[in-house]
Every structure is written in C-alpha cells, then in structure tokens.
Amino acid sequence: MKVFIRFLFVGLLMSIGLLLPGSGAEAAYPDKALEFIAPANPGGGWDMTCRLSAKVLNETGLVKNPIAVINKPGGFGVVAMTDIIRNRSKDQNVLVAFSAVLSTQMAIQKNPYTYKDITPVAALFVDYGTIAVRKDSPYATMKDLIESWKKNPGVLTFAGSSPPGGLDHIRMAMLAKAIGIPAKNILYVAFQSGGDALSALMGGHVTAFVGEAGEIAGFAESGAVRPLTVLGDRKLTGIFEKIPLAKDLGLDVSSPNWRGFYAAPGMSKEPLRYWEDTFGKMVKTKEWNDVLKKQAWVDFLLTGEKLRNFLAKEISMYQGLAKELGLVK
C-alpha cells in the first residue's frame, strides 16, 4: 500500500508542482521542472544516458528539481534536434542526449545541422568499440581473423547496429584501412539494434560482431561470445582485461562512442555553467561510478571549449573516412 500511496502522492506532487511553479519568483536556475530528451526508443544508449544520469542527479540531490525523461525517437537523433533548434531554441530547461553517433551522422550529412547549431554541454563517458565472434568460431584471436579476412575479403561478414557510414561501419572501415583491405570489400550488415546484431552472431549468420564493449560484456562473461579486440586507448576492466587493444596488435584504430548532452542553441551562460558544474560534481559521486562499473563505461568528462574542439576534430576525421568509403561526395 505504501508504494501505491507514494505512487499517487508523487503524481499529485508533480501535478501541483506543475501548477504552482515559481514560488520564489527570482530563484536561481533551475527554477522549473527539467527535461532530459532521449532522441531514441527506450533501452538504447541515449535512453540509458538520460535515465541513469537523471536518476543519479536526483538521488544524490545534486539537482533538486524533478527531471523528466522523454523519448523522442527518429532519424538517429535528427527529429529531436530539429525540434529543439526550430521550436525550442530558447528553452533553458531541456537537455538532449548525444554521442559519437551524432558526429558520424553530421559527417555524412545525414544530419543537416552541425555542432555549432546547438549548445554542446558535456561529454560524460565512453563505451569503446569491440570486435567479437561466437564461442565456436574458428577465429581464436584477432590475428586469425585478420589473416582470413586478407585472404578472402569478400567472404567474412560483420554485423553492426548503425547504418552504413555510421559508427559501426566506420569502425570496420578504420580496421580495413589499418590492415590494408579496400573499403569496398567490407561486407557490413546493418541491423536495427545491437541486440539484433548479436542475435545474428550467436545464430551463426555472420562471421563477427562490431559494436560496443558494453553491449557484449554479459555475453563475454558467460562465454557465449569471444571478444577479439577492444578498439580503445586504454584497457578495460573485468572480462575485457585480457583482451588486447587494437593498437597493441599494430592497428591504429580507436573508436570511442562517447555520450553526453547538448542543449538548445539559445541556452544562456548561467544555465550552461550550472550544468557544467553539476556534471563535474556528478562524475565524482560514488553513485555515478557504480553506474559506470555496471555498464562497462569509462569516465570521459569534457565540457566547454575542449568539448567543442573535440567535436570539430572528430567530425572532420569521420568526414575523411566517409569520403574514402564513398559515402559522401
């Protein structure tokens, strides 16, 4: 009963809070209910970013105002971005999740905007890329896979969860380039989600899986899937501890999928500083670090000028790769 009452009570409070905001008229930011928008369906990376950080921020009391998480899926984030830029450009109370996926979409011009059209707020953590095979695969190590791939480049198939030109495809392109295989010979099969790609791998329908370490951590632990390499700059912990980094294998490939938030183009200085400070505090909390550990994520805080420089560099790098792949003219 207690929960049910609480359930009603929270609802009641929220509606009262909605009806009677601004009791202290000139209160400091934030003075209203806040909104995190996940530009994708529930369950994915963007959704998790929103929900988990909203949870930590509210539970630790770093943000007192209730944060509502809203899903606005479509076009790999374009639908939500268009809405923010066109209709809510002055809204100070909304943050939207974004990640390297958005950079690749901007690089191949599937997203008509650039990072200059929005206010990047913070990058919070990264999920490193990985290549994995099924447990009974003939490829015991990345070396075996590379050798076989070199010999018959048109036979090995790779399942990922981004569209061509997206992050997973670009990861394959980077690998192929480092190995010396022409980009045209990559057999990349796009699936709807990491889960679908993983199903195809485990059913034996494709040779290997390309995606994020976090997506397969549980499967690697159970032994159903064998990670061959991590496409990152530093060693991961847990099950990935013994998995070699691509650069240790002589392949200069690192493709972190960082995740964070952006805000409306018209966000003023004060709220922006508030969020930069708050996220700075959040990543130091025990609660947040527990989240990182559980999700196999790695801390990656970037804000302000640093974040913008990082974005500019990343997008132009992906642009170059997309051109080599023949995805943009």
């Binding site: 529930p42 369950g43 998790m48 989600s193 993983l198 199903s199 485990m202 549980g218 159903a224």
Partner: peptide, 19 residues
C-alpha cells in the same frame, strides 16, 4: 534464456533490467 531482446516490449524490459 539468451539475454537478447527480440521484440519492442522485451527491449524495454532489457533496458529496465540494465537500469
């Protein structure tokens, strides 16, 4: 049994389990 969400609904459950 496999840890794989095969439908929209189980995908939400998958997300909730992670959370």
């Amino acid at each position: 049994t496999m840890g794989l969400p095969a439908s929209a609904v189980t995908a939400v459950m998958y997300g909730a389990l992670l959370m």
